[in-house]
Design a protein around this nucleic acid. Structure first.
Lengths: 197, 197
DNA sequence: TTCAGACTCGGACAATCGTATGACTCCACT
DNA sequence: AGTGGAGTCATACGATTGTCCGAGTCTGAA
């Protein structure tokens, strides 16, 4: 019953996810997804009423995959500092980041430009809030006030977004590594100056 | 003769520039530009052979406008440090940056995703090179080595891109101001530690 | 064995896309 | 006065878009 259906639905999401990432949302057509999955165009309507529904499913998928990544960072160690370091190192190892940028950052830049982007914008911020709150939680566990922890979380995300954007524009692996190291030492400084041991 | 023609051509470029910025390149159609200018769709072909030609003209226009901005920063003072400060403060005063992000950053994120984006990518890097070389020039004038100046220039651009992206996602004016101030004090630190007075 | 419903398929819908053309107006110049 | 080219305009092309549907297949339950 709902077994094969879910499989195909998942196949659509995965193909759309990759295409949205590589080609962008607007430049990806149903035909593209059809070619990638082998499923006929008309079949999509059975699972998703509109293209935006596919986008929603893709974003949910990315949120979940990022959630698992954060979970892995959380479970790897009890030290919030080490957790943040693991989080920062994540994009440095990912080869595709160099080519296509951050899956969330680029999508946000694309979807942020909409006629009345109430729905999209809310979804984008919700996505970033996942990262934001996780980072803020780690900073908070280090002993800074919640307000300051949120500030630091935003600054960390901004640094990482800028890093991935510039790195992908210039396709510069060395810059990616160097800036990643810079963020790591910035984290060290933060902890050294703001955290009472 | 070529007077009214240039006027209309300019009108197309300006309308396309604004639309590409607000709605994105892919989501902007000839009809949109037609509505914005009042000029019939078919007329565009007289000035531009393809949509990408319009994009080229728009990017040239943005490069020139950024060039003038850099020129203003250069002429304002002889002190490279003050010049860099003026450059950093530029997006903080621009209201639209909060809504739509950096005109180059968002466009780069959008155009970076192309089938075989040889042409677009080259143009994007050329655009960023303008900023990169100017910043590197200022750092160089402060006395650091050319290689180090280029590194600092890239890092500055990355920080500003990350700042504008996060600020536009959350529409957070306070974050924009705070992070801008953070970049300024980072500049102070750089100069204090790396420049021999 | 039958049947309802989950699922699949190919095609077609209207709309819009970017592109293109041919006839038109206007003005500078001879 | 008349010619030629710059500029303007309405229109329409083929292709593709996202959407949608009717008919079909398959399968588990009755």
């Amino acid at each position: 019953m709902a077994t094969k259906g879910i499989t195909n639905r998942q196949r659509i999401i995965e193909a759309a996810d990759r295409l949205f990432y590589v080609r962008g949302y607007n430049r990806t057509s149903f035909s593209d997804i059809s070619d990638a999955t082998g499923l006929p165009r008309g079949n999509f309507y059975y699972y998703f009423k509109t293209k935006e529904d596919i986008l929603d499913a893709v974003m949910d998928s990315r949120v979940e995959s990022f959630g698992q990544m954060l979970k892995a960072c959380t479970q790897a160690t009890d030290d919030p500092h080490a957790r943040l370091l693991a989080f920062v190192r994540q994009p440095l190892q990912n080869e595709q980041v160099l080519q296509y940028g951050c899956p969330f950052g680029t999508l946000s830049a694309e979807l942020g430009k909409s006629p009345s982007a109430e729905a999209s914008r809310a979804q984008i911020t919700a996505v970033f809030d996942v990262l934001r709150h996780w980072c803020a939680g780690q900073f908070g566990a280090l002993g800074v006030t919640p307000a300051r922890a949120d500030q630091l979380a935003l600054e960390l995300l901004a640094r990482m977004q800028g890093m991935t954007l510039i790195a992908s524009i210039y396709n510069d692996r060395e810059f990616l590594q160097r800036t990643g190291a810079g963020i790591e030492s910035w984290l060290d400084e933060i902890i050294k100056h703001e955290v009472q041991a």
